[in-house]
């Protein structure tokens, strides 16, 4: 394993505090890794600009690397590369669905209202669902309702 792969493996253990089944790697928020004997720099790009979990993840990433012997660790948050929900890996989307949150639909560019009309209920698998509100319990989730099993559920917003 080269250094970058080792770091990727370590960061798999750092979870998103709002969705504990997903790591920062699964989420696709790590946008750069540079590491040498003397120093390591990680770049991350947040899912939402105002995401309150950013600082916590930033600290956890630094802590994880320091514990594993990396020196002069810095974690930078920037918007040079913008996160979109398409950056979430296919495995991440499966984990999300199993966790009870409908994964984001692929967007390839800009979101439209039509995209929000497509989501599969994570409880029963029906696609007969509707958007109740584009805002949910966290910035990244919308509230939906399933007509088939008559239950509410959350979807990770396509963004």
């Amino acid at each position: 394993m080269n250094e970058e792969q080792k770091i990727l493996a370590l960061l798999q253990e750092v979870k998103d505090p709002e969705i504990p089944v997903l790591s920062v790697i699964d989420m696709g928020i790590i946008s750069g890794i540079q590491s040498s004997e003397a120093a390591t720099e990680i770049k991350m790009t947040p899912t939402f600009v105002g995401c309150p979990a950013i600082d916590m993840m930033k600290n956890q990433i630094a802590e994880k690397l320091i514990q594993n012997g990396y020196k002069n660790v810095t974690v930078l948050v920037d918007f040079e590369t913008q996160w979109t929900s398409d950056k979430m890996s296919p495995e991440a989307k499966m984990k999300l669905e199993k966790f009870g949150i409908a994964p984001p639909t692929e967007i390839h560019g800009d979101i439209s209202e039509e995209m929000l009309n497509r989501a599969r209920c994570p409880h029963c698998g029906s696609t007969d669902t509707t958007l109740r509100s584009p805002f949910g319990s966290t910035l990244c989730r919308a509230i939906r309702f399933c007509f088939s099993c008559k239950q509410g559920f959350e979807q990770f917003k396509p963004i």
Binding site: F48, V49, G50, C51, P52, F79, R132, S133, P134, F135, G136, S137, L139, I143
Partner: peptide, 20 residues
Amino acid sequence: LEEDLAFSSMAQDKIGHASA
């Protein structure tokens, strides 16, 4: 409830934008 969440979420977004 949904509207309470909507305005609260938008508040969080806006303050995030201000901070950036």
